[in-house]
């Protein structure tokens, strides 16, 4: 095994081009476990901790450019307003110690369906900025996940950042685990309301071979909200609409039975989380509307 320590992003790209099998390591949450337990012996280990700008973020007009290695703790503390869904998801990642070191780059690189960031990124609408010596490209999050622990990266590419639209409405994230802290998702659900486009987006974790959106559920809800004039009248979403949305989210799942949970439970739980997060976000949207109206 060789240990590569690129001092800059350019050096990292060059190293990755030269050694496409090099395994990047930043927070170490996944890579070190695989090494400690002899599941993986990469030829090259490439430390990205020396590439400073991976730990930085910029809040722009429209979106946040979040460095791949910005620790989850920073996201929780600093980006709650801009990226509320991701901040909530960050708070559910493993333990404080791991949140202090891990970032979304690791979740995306591993592309496990259980990664906590995925549902929030899917719901918010994100693009993954990847780069190689050949150039930069931005991969829409919906096209990023290609299979169980497979992503859209080419062998010479590294994840530099994610671009996430700033929240224009309430967002929520829920995750089921069989413990009240430090737990891998049995399944997870992210929901974002986008009042500007009058759309909702979802993200589901650990209930299919890859993180997915519940597109039929989104379409149903978009139509139902539009038809009922809900975005304007701010009425409570009728229970039957919420339930149908939940059922469609369940139906979007393609889960397996494993030691963490049954497929049947995952489908059920995704439905419950979908209904609850819809209620929470919609209540919050209504509250914000009332405040605006009250102020006006």
């Amino acid at each position: 095994m060789d240990f590569l320590r690129p001092a800059s992003w350019e050096e990292a790209l060059a190293a990755k081009a030269e050694h496409p099998t090099a395994v990047p390591i930043a927070g170490g949450t996944d890579v070190m476990v695989e090494i400690n337990f002899d599941h993986r012996r990469p030829e090259y280990l490439m430390d990205l901790n020396r590439v400073g700008d991976l730990c930085e973020w910029e809040v722009g007009e429209e979106s946040v450019r979040l460095g791949a290695s910005v620790p989850y703790t920073r996201i929780m503390e600093n980006l709650r307003a801009e990226l509320p869904g991701l901040a909530l998801a960050s708070h559910t990642v493993a333990s404080p110690q791991i949140r202090n070191r891990g970032g979304v780059g690791g979740n995306l690189g591993t592309a496990s369906p259980a990664g906590d960031a995925h549902p929030a990124l899917l719901a918010a609408g994100a693009e993954v900025e990847v780069e190689s010596v050949r150039g930069t490209r931005r991969i829409p999050i919906d096209e990023f996940y290609k299979g169980v622990k497979r992503n859209a990266l080419a062998a010479d590419e590294l994840i530099r950042a994610v671009h996430v639209k700033k929240a224009d409405g309430p967002q929520q994230f829920s995750k089921v685990g069989t413990r009240n802290a430090m737990v891998i998702a049995v399944c997870a659900f992210g929901l974002a309301l986008h009042p500007e486009t009058r759309t909702v987006r979802t993200g589901i974790g650990s209930a299919a071979p890859t993180p997915i959106r519940a597109e039929a559920a989104e379409e149903f809800l978009n139509a139902a909200l539009e038809e009922g004039g809900f975005w304007d009248n701010g009425k409570i979403v009728t229970p039957s609409v919420a339930q149908q949305f939940a059922d469609l989210c369940s139906a979007a799942c393609n889960p397996i039975d494993d030691v963490r949970g049954t497929a049947s439970y995952r489908r059920h739980a995704v439905g419950v989380m979908a209904r609850r997060t819809l209620t929470w976000t919609w209540e919050s949207y209504r509250g914000a509307r009332r405040n605006i109206e009250g102020a006006a």
């Binding site: 909530l88 708070h91 559910t92 929520q172 994230f173 829920s174 995750k175 089921v176 685990g177 413990r179 009240n180 802290a181 737990v183 998702a185 989380m273 609850r276 929470w280």
Partner: peptide, 9 residues
């Protein structure tokens, strides 16, 4: 129940 995972309010 659910703790930090934010499953119920």
């Amino acid at each position: 129940p659910g703790g930090l995972s934010n499953t119920t309010h």
